[in-house]
Amino acid sequence: MNEILTLAFVVQVSRMTIPYLLPSLGAVFSEKGGVINIALEGIMLSGAFAAVAVIHYTSNLFLGIIAAAFSGLLISAVHSFITIIARANQIVSGIALNILALGITKYLCKVIFGSSSNSERIPGTEVLNLGFDVFIPFSVIILFLAWIIIYKTKFGLRLRACGENPEAADSLGVNVFRIRFSGILISGLLASLGGAYLALEQHSFTDGMTAGRGYIALAAMITGKWNPLGAATACMFFGLMESFSLQFSGSEIPNQFIQMIPYVITIIVLAGFIGKARPPKADGIAFEKN
């Protein structure tokens, strides 16, 4: 047991946690503003692909990360248009965007790398390492920034108002459309960085490599009761579970049951067995200006 609790293990858990944490914080921004963003999964996937493809051509890590961020912003802008301007169903839009991202990344992977299932190992696809993984302090900073922005700034107050009662916010002169738009864009940006991190860790792109992490991020946000710190705690717990499942693979507990844990916990939390989980009141409802 002592061997498990080493620094290496802590670092490993952190690395497992980051691909959940970034999109999960993104989800908080989107849902606090009142828009459900199920497209996180597809956004992560496109972020992962954009990073790998751009690094393949330019051998430049920063350009790769910028490309990932750009792809995330692009997809979330489409999601914003469909849900805010056209006011279509947010869940359906998210699912369709996930299918779209899966198709596009597969197709481009075939065009660029000659195989629709995976790219070769791309040199230069590494997490920037200054003796430590720079994404770890970066994620911690983002976490506290997210908390400060949502609870201590004017923008955060307006964002929460748009998620709880957009009519009231509107009557006080808040531009609900613009605030919700920003919330979705932030979620897209963070989710695509989470995806890029995943690709950098694996030094290549694999078809469907996000493997439901976007959904787990959403689950973590619910388990964390729509609060950045709560979401982070849940992400860390899920990251810990994933590390354990690697550590104990081949033991008497079947791996599939460990994989189920995040989803089962979410259902239990949502059912109100562990405190009350209450989403923002206008979450998922399109706003119509009179």
Partner: peptide, 20 residues
């Protein structure tokens, strides 16, 4: 893959157009 993309675009345009 193109078929997958077309299906996704069909869904997106269907929900957007019907709503508008």
């Amino acid at each position: 893959e193109i078929i997958t993309i077309i299906q996704a675009l069909t869904i997106l345009s269907a929900i957007t157009i019907t709503e508008l």
